[in-house]
Amino acid sequence: MGLGLGSLFLATILVLNGLAILNEERFLRRIGWGYEENLQEPPSFKKQVINLLYAVRVLLRVPLLGLNVLTILVKLLMG
């Protein structure tokens, strides 16, 4: 049952972790994907990706902490 709600939840958590872990100073700014330097750009695919990464970093950091801990605990207890 590949696309059930449970596996979708796990996949979402993993993808969000992947988006949130990209570091602005160490990584994104060096390849020209920093948030501030692209503020003046017209809307485009790249701009939207940068916006999304920034939003995930800012908004989802704390919720992701909780969700990760919860998921790890559930997985540890129930496999």
Binding site: L3, L5, L8
Partner: peptide, 13 residues
């Protein structure tokens, strides 16, 4: 439950 979960998962995705 499994079928409903699959269907909802598809819609959500």
């Amino acid at each position: 439950g499994l079928t409903a979960s699959r269907g909802l998962g598809v819609v959500l995705l």
